[in-house]
Computed example of a mutant assay.
Amino acid sequence: MKQVAFAVAFVFLTIISVAQDKTVQELRKESGKSITKDDKDTVAKTWKTGGMFNGTVGQTSLSNWAAGGDQFSFNANGLLSLYAFYKKGIHSWDNSIDMELGYINSTSLGTRKTNDRLDIISKYGCQLFDHMYLTGLFNFRSQFTEGYTYPNDTTRIKQSTFLAPAYVIVALGMDWKPSPTFSLFLSPITSRWVIVRDDSLSAKGAYGVDTGRTSRNEIGAYLTATVNREIIKNLTYKAKLDLFSNYKHNPQNIDLFMTNLLSMNVYKGFSFNLGADLIYDDDVRTFGKEKNAPRLQVRQFIGIGYQRKF
């Protein structure tokens, strides 16, 4: 099952991204051009910065409703994506940060988290030939707040928090950029740290970290692909795919992390959003009848909200 999910995710991401288009990511290409601020200033600008904010909200209330349901429910989700791209000669430096947080509040269940992500990427590359860069990569991924599972309406079990888990990746490899909207990075030797800086989770040996320890180092192969392109006018697709194989332990069980966001600008910033996130981590063994097996984790959402690019 997980092999099929990996193949489908990667093929879909690669096919949709290779074509050229006119999107915000074209600033990478433009950033290599020399732009002077005025006649007296000849210092070339080689940076381009910007980002996107996407917020969605929803609310439902019932009064004397015979069909039943919660008297009140409210949900909100926010995504802030920022970038800073540098290009001068054969050198490039791409930096991005994605921050996402979502909650739902209902009469019967109270407030629960629906989404929580902090993802930072920095890549420095030296161009070898057309579209190919020798690149060093740093990636940090974690979350902002505590997360729980709910066996029943009155019980909750802590599953995560800031830096528990967190993933730090340092890699050297090749970065292929066939268009300004697509990047494919591959490293055969990558160092990854899994961090669990929470006493209760560390004591349980959560996320594959040895019981009582706060981190675990893994050496393996790493692939990451990113795309941000306008499919047609006002319809944008943004995605990221990470694959990691740990040489030290079960290298055939590849960890997967993928985010997808399809956004259509409906009218003056108001947008329709369709998203899906996929995660498979062989060390997250909290599923199945015995609560000791990994599973493909899936999150999908549909919403109408406000989107602003800057």
Rank of each mutant, 00 (worst) to 15 (best):
R192C: 04
G125P: 00
F140I: 09
I169V: 15
V170E: 13
N139C: 07
F138A: 12
S202T: 01
T154M: 11
P188G: 02
T190L: 05
Y207R: 00
T155Y: 07
D198Q: 02
R213K: 15
L134K: 03
R156M: 10
M132S: 12
I195S: 05
K177E: 13
I195W: 02
A171C: 05
I189Q: 08
G136D: 05
S200D: 15
S183Q: 10
D199L: 10
T154D: 14
T190Q: 03
T181N: 15
Y133G: 01
L128C: 01
A166P: 02
T149D: 12
W193R: 11
A203K: 14
Y133A: 02
S179Q: 05
T190D: 04
A206T: 04
N152P: 00
N152M: 02
R213N: 15
E146G: 09
Q159L: 13
G212A: 00
V170M: 13
P165S: 04
F138V: 10
T190Y: 02
S202I: 00
A166V: 03
I169R: 14
L184F: 14
R213S: 15
Y133C: 01
F140K: 05
L186E: 08
A164W: 00
G136N: 08
D175P: 05
D210Q: 14
D130E: 15
A203R: 11
Y148S: 04
L128W: 03
W176L: 09
I157K: 12
V209G: 03
S215W: 09
V209P: 07
T154S: 15
V168K: 08
F182M: 13
R156Q: 15
F162M: 10
D210W: 09
K158V: 04
K204N: 13
G208P: 03
T211F: 11
T161F: 08
A164K: 04
V194S: 14
D199S: 14
S160Y: 06
T145S: 14
D198K: 01
K177N: 11
K204S: 10
L163Y: 06
G173L: 01
L172N: 14
T135W: 02
A166K: 05
W176M: 06
G147F: 02
D210A: 14
G173H: 04
Y148K: 04
D153M: 14
R192L: 12
S191P: 08
P188A: 04
Y167P: 05
V209A: 02
P151D: 05
G173M: 00
S200M: 10
W176P: 02
F140M: 10
P180M: 08
I157M: 09
I169N: 12
L128S: 01
G208L: 02
D175Q: 05
P188T: 00
I189M: 13
Y148D: 02
F182R: 07
F185H: 03
T181I: 09
G208C: 01
I157N: 13
R197T: 09
G208K: 06
L163G: 00
L184A: 15
R192S: 10
Q143I: 06
T214F: 13
P151R: 07
S183P: 07
I189T: 09
L163T: 06
S191D: 11
